[in-house]
Amino acid sequence: MRIQTTITKTLFLFFAFNMGSLHTIQAQLSPPGLGKTKRAFWSAVGIKRKLDSVGKKETMTYFGLGRKSDPDHSRLLENQAILVFNHEVYRNFAPNQQYSYAVSYRRQDNYETKAPYRFEGIEQEFRVYGRYAYTLRLGDQWKWKNTARQEFRKFYTADFSKADENFQFRTRLKTQLTYTLPTKTKQALALSAEGLFAVSRYNGGDKKWSKLAYKEARLGVYYLLQIPRTPLSMDIGYVNNLIKGYHAAKSGVHYLAVDLIWTIPYRR
């Protein structure tokens, strides 16, 4: 038994009663890739902080936890999958335009690819990325947001030795359509589609580069809610992760995602 198992179970019980989302009703904390599995669960708690009085600058810091089933079972919470710590800075620099930059640490559990899918080891990742987003408003209730995100990912084993994959450059292109519901409280529905493309450098004798290639697609639908009379917002979503070459899950890996965000207003 690993100490991490006890820690993650405790964190999961905490999240199960404190889930929700990220922005006031503008976005959600999308789950990371949780590998080749059948079902997965993602949750995160975070703090969004306003940095000015006009709403042009803000930060988002969150801690997330993922669990997953074995590839041939549907037990959603069976195995620990990932721990994530992420910090991102946003700036709205022009009408409808935004850029952001972030640093992230991820600790992912790997398992054997064949039954009984025993625990194989830990992979650690340090990530930096930049993001550009353009939002087109279609009337009072519709919003169409398109995002380009470039990542640099560096990998290590559990003891910070060299991993098989040294580092990776990954490009993510995402489009999302959001409909604000005509209710007294702030509620919305969001549909999204994202494609991921990557090129990697590997450790080893020849240290070769891989070819730049399409890796996966993530299709999502989310319900977003600003909790009345509180600084909290939440979202509940479903994501279908279509992984290239993963024929065991022809219909994709199915994620349930629930997140909670506390917004701190600007103070001088």
Rank of each mutant, 00 (worst) to 15 (best):
Y105I: 03
K154M: 10
Y111F: 15
L65T: 02
W142S: 09
N110H: 05
F93D: 01
S74A: 09
N79L: 12
Q168N: 07
V89N: 05
N92W: 00
A94G: 00
F160C: 07
E88D: 03
F152H: 14
F155Q: 05
R75M: 07
Q97L: 04
R67C: 02
K154N: 08
T147I: 13
A115L: 04
V128T: 15
F85W: 05
S104V: 11
G130I: 04
E151D: 14
R91D: 04
A148H: 10
Q80D: 15
K143H: 12
Q168M: 13
E165Q: 13
Q108L: 13
E165T: 15
A163Y: 15
Q124C: 05
R153A: 11
Q141N: 10
K162R: 15
A102Q: 12
P116M: 05
E78D: 09
L138W: 12
A81F: 01
R127Q: 14
G130Y: 03
A102E: 08
N166D: 15
E165I: 15
R149D: 13
R131C: 00
F126G: 14
S104P: 02
N110D: 08
K114S: 03
D70Y: 08
Y134G: 10
N146I: 06
W144R: 03
V84P: 02
Y132R: 09
W142V: 00
H87I: 03
G64C: 01
D140M: 06
I82L: 14
G121M: 07
I122D: 09
R149H: 02
G64L: 00
E151S: 13
R137L: 06
L138P: 06
T157D: 10
P95F: 04
Q97V: 02
F85L: 13
Y132A: 10
V128W: 08
L77K: 01
E165S: 11
L77R: 09
R106M: 13
L83S: 06
N110W: 04
A163L: 02
T157P: 01
H87E: 05
